[in-house]
Structure formats: structure tokens, C-alpha cells
Amino acid sequence: MALLEVKNLDVHYGVIQAIKNISFEVNEGEIVTLIGANGAGKTTTMQSIMGLIHPSRGEIYYNGQKINNIPSHKIVKMGMTQVPEGRRIFSELTVYENLVMGAYTRKDKDGIEKDFKDIYALFPRLEERKNQIAGTLSGGEQQMLAMGRAIMSKPKLLMLDEPSMGLSPLLVDQVFEIIKHFHSLGTTILLVEQNANKSLAISDRAYVLKNGEIVRAGTGAELLANDEIKKDYLGG
């Protein structure tokens, strides 16, 4: 059984249809990527899964349970979260308080403490700056904080929306390394990216989204080798 299953999803913004009958699934332990150009419907798909926007048709199942009408905060409690596009850290809170917010749904004090240690070991910059107001961090540091904050909820399924956006090539490499690291610890990953090269390289499977429809699906390696994909998304 798939960990996440999206079936015949339609999403409308007023009269405009942003998502047209898409279906896909993410199995436990996989890294799955949705690639597509700006406006293809990637963020809309993610927000629908998290319950932040409501689809007009279709079903979303998590662990076999239908989650269409479950409010976002309960979906997080069920073990799913998202690193949103543009990071959206809480700029008025300190780095430490942002991470505490990530653990909002958790009650296991010891577990939280251990995860703090792990996050600080993974991102030494965040530990150095733990008492700093998060709004004063650089873009790269904010991305690290957003990822750390999401992992603090101990998700079974972590979704990342354009985590490499606006970062220097060095930082982009680091972001993909961290995604692989989270995956190696047993987290299932659903990734949305414009950087198709890097994301397909680490993906088990991927779907290509175009104008709100899934136009192609395959393994990461298959799609990387596909001429059409190369032309459209890999820059030649």
C-alpha cells in the first residue's frame, strides 16, 4: 500500500483549473519528485495534500486513510509535513524557537532533546545562531532552518517545495545532501523542484507536471535519460 496516494485530483482557483485529474503515489521509503515549469501546478498539488487548499474533486489517502477533509494541523500530527516554498520561517522568533515550533505536536521531551542535538550536529550554523532572531539569517541559513524545523515534527513523509530556489550552487548541493541524509534515516520524501537535474538524480521515481497535468512518469534515471525531458527541463 502506498504511503501517500493522490487519486483524480482537480483543483480550481475560481474558474481557472490549476490541477487537472492528476493521480500519483509515493511508497514508503521512496524519494519521489514532481518536476515542472513555473505555474505547472506543483505548489498547488503540495498545498492540497497538506489541506491548505481544498481540491474540487478527487481523493488523497495517507496510509490508506482519506485525508481530504482533515484540517492541516491534524495532518501534521499524522506524520506528514512540508518545507514550504520560500522557506517561510518565523522571522520574529529565534532560531531555537523556530525549531521548538517544529516540534509543536510532540510531547516526548527526551525525543525532542535528542532531535535538537541531531539537528545542531547536522547544521552547526544553526547552533551558533540559536538565540538569533531568525529574520536576520542569510537565505541559505533560513533554508537550513526551514528543513530543520520540518524534521523536528518527526515526519514519516517530508515534502519539500523548491528547496534549492534562490541558493548558490554550493548551497544547492548541500540541500540535496541533506535530503539524502533525511531519507537515509527512514523518511519518505516527496520533492517538488525546478532543478530537474539534481532532483531526478536522487529520485527513485518522478512525475512531470505540465499545465496542471501529469504528462510523464518514470524512474529518476529513465527521465534523466529522456531526450524530451532533457530538452524541456535539463537545459539541452
Binding site: 509535513t81 514550504p84 520561517i89 518565523f90 522568533l93 515550533m101 509543536y104 515534527s153
Partner: peptide, 24 residues
Amino acid sequence: TKTGRAMIAVSEDRGAAQLMGINV
């Protein structure tokens, strides 16, 4: 307090706060 910080989080970004599992 946890609730107090959640108030700051909601006031700054309601959507991101929901992604933390905060019941707005």
C-alpha cells in the same frame, strides 16, 4: 509558553503555522 509562541507564529504566517501542526 508554547501557546504564546504559537500566537507569534500564527500572527506572522498562518499557513506556515498550520504546517507546524498549530490549530489556528
